[in-house]
């Protein structure tokens, strides 16, 4: 009898799994991974939440506007930083570009940062004589942009003994290269206030 009970207990222990297993973590202490989508309120300066909300609202507004018919080619220009802070505006345009690309509404021409690598590679393939002819990308087939996308970010900062208030305004416009007409435009406003 007692053997049977022991066997049952052992089986139960095996079924439920015993004790706790170690987490696959090395080190630890005060370090942890956080939620990248959380609202960041560490300081009043331009932060991850601002970057995310600007990119999200701009990309969606443009994708849904109906201006981008038949996946046109867009050339992205840097966003002008007219604030008093250092902001990596390239990251804003990269996020907007990524989201538009994922929405399937636009294609993107080589912009000023990757144009040099593109030209270098084309020249290397065509002028070095190193490559098999059939595999060489031909010169003169790069696709020119139908639209250019450019924007700016500016800020108004006010301080009193009790408050620090920052107001950001991000504007973005899509301009038809041939006609020079702005075909779409939108802006995003953000207010952040610190009470001292």
């Amino acid at each position: 009898m007692s053997i049977r009970i022991l066997a049952l207990l052992t089986a139960a222990a095996m079924l439920t799994g015993c004790a706790s297993t170690a987490s696959p973590v090395l080190g630890g202490g005060n370090i942890s991974y956080g939620d990248t989508k959380a609202i960041e309120l560490v300081t009043n300066e331009f932060g991850s939440t601002d970057l995310q909300s600007i990119a999200e609202s701009m990309a969606r507004s443009l994708a849904q506007s109906g201006v981008l018919q038949a996946r046109p080619v867009i050339q992205v220009y840097d966003v002008k930083n007219k604030t008093s802070e250092y902001i990596d505006t390239r990251e804003i345009t990269t996020s907007i570009k990524t989201q538009l690309m994922k929405s399937g509404t636009a294609r993107f021409a080589s912009d000023n940062t990757d144009m040099q690598s593109q030209v270098d590679q084309l020249k290397l393939q065509n002028q070095s004589g190193l490559y098999k002819d059939a595999t060489v990308s031909q010169m003169g087939n790069m696709v020119a942009a139908k639209y250019r996308l450019e924007g700016s970010i500016s800020s108004i900062v006010k301080r009193s003994s009790d408050y620090k208030d920052v107001f950001y305004k991000f504007s973005l416009q899509l301009v038809d290269v041939e006609t020079g007409l702005a075909e779409w435009m939108d802006e995003k406003e953000i207010r952040k206030t610190t009470e001292r």
Binding site: T36, K37, A38, I39, T49, Q52, S53, E56, A59, R60, S61, A63, Q64, Q99, K102, S103, G104
Partner: peptide
């Protein structure tokens, strides 16, 4: 999506707008 913050004033009704990221 990233979380968004909104202030609703006393007794206010606000309309949250949203557009899907993909068709």
């Amino acid at each position: 999506e990233s979380w968004k913050s909104l202030t609703l004033y006393g007794t206010q009704t606000s309309y949250l707008p949203a557009i899907a990221p993909v068709p």
